[in-house]
Write a protein that binds this DNA or RNA. Structure first.
Lengths: 196, 196
DNA sequence: AAGTTCGTACAGTTTTTTCTGTACAAACCA
DNA sequence: TGGTTTGTACAGAAAAAACTGTACGAACTT
């Protein structure tokens, strides 16, 4: 079991060490993926795929994670919806193959875009409607002055919100268009240059 | 009940209209607050506070939302942790008073900062550790070449992640320092200027 | 066309989260 | 000091979410 031929100070062999180092990262992803609105299981799935150098099938994942194929199917779909994972092809393989997208910067931008764009348009629609209603209400001569004042205050608030979501929309634009990299540049493009 | 003195085309009176307009916004917030990691209930609580022009006590919220005081207490804490809500004081009132922070831009930046900063440092720590272990492992003469190659690949991956989180950290800086407003400016500062 | 294989819809179960009521400590009041 | 009032910890109930097994349609094989 613990036979260790080398004169090292550890009881673990090399494979175990590698596995442990990977496991730590995977667990770290699992614990933080809630920021992406995903479950720890999906995070573990992602992490597993991340360290596999070949694309995986649903059956592979079932094997690796000891979970049902149904679960693998649903969570790989969730990962794909957020563009964290993409399909791959390999000739001769009939099963669907999946692999992680390797550009994490882009994945982050995609996440941001998908999540917040949806939110902005949802909110904007609600604000537009309520604003229209209140602007109609405020000029209604039949309402009393106390109410009119309340309505006026609410209109102010909604105008503020409208501006805010308009700003948020432009922020998403800046992410989508990669303008954000002008403000916060990526240091090392892809390859690391030797010696500084 | 539906006595409507005005000659309007609606059956609702002014108060109902106002209430409906508010309700739409509140529900919109409730449906989207999951982006902040909060429950719809907390969102409704926030929305209710948003339209109240006076700070609210826990008992007020219990009244407004028909939920237990315990729930109000826990979710107002969650809202405070994300700096969406702050305590207020009013002389003569013994109870704790809460109100929404009125700067949504700042709230957004706070959220971003709180959520992602924590994530970055968590990930970075894991990466540092695993990287150290693997760099020790890769120079171990006792491991075979197949394993060494795998370890080398993983080290590459971890270096990539390290760069990525370093970038994310700088991105959070840019938000915290308000540099983001240089890239995506707020249009109307606070007050809306009449006639452009 | 019959037989496989694969992915997912769906219903039911397990697990997790949210919510409530009770209980109690701290602060205030008289 | 004894009596309120206020906020929250905690245990249990209710609600929601995650997960599994079965079933089935679609695509491929022969």
């Amino acid at each position: 079991m613990n036979a260790d031929a080398s004169g090292g100070k550890t009881l673990m062999n090399g494979n175990e060490k590698l596995e442990k180092a990977r496991e730590r990262i995977i667990e770290s992803i699992a614990q933080n993926i809630h920021l992406y609105g995903l479950t720890p299981s999906a995070g573990r799935q992602y992490g597993t795929m991340f360290f596999h150098n070949e694309p995986l099938t649903l059956d592979d994942m079932t094997e690796e994670l000891g979970m049902s194929k149904t679960s693998m199917s649903t969570s790989v779909r969730a990962l794909s919806d957020l563009k964290l994972v993409e399909r791959a092809w390999k000739r001769g393989v009939r099963k669907d193959l999946y692999q992680v997208k390797d550009d994490w910067y882009q994945s982050f931008l995609d996440l941001f875009s998908i999540k917040w764009r949806r939110s902005v348009s949802f909110h904007s629609a609600a604000i537009r409607r309520s604003l229209a209603e209140l602007e109609e209400l405020v000029i209604d001569p039949a309402i009393d002055d106390g109410l009119r004042e309340e309505v006026t205050i609410d209109i102010e608030k909604l105008l503020y919100l409208r501006d805010y979501y308009e700003w948020l929309d432009r922020l998403v634009d800046a992410f989508e268009d990669h303008d954000i990299f002008n403000l916060v540049p990526i240091k090392k493009p892809e390859k690391d240059t030797p010696n500084k």
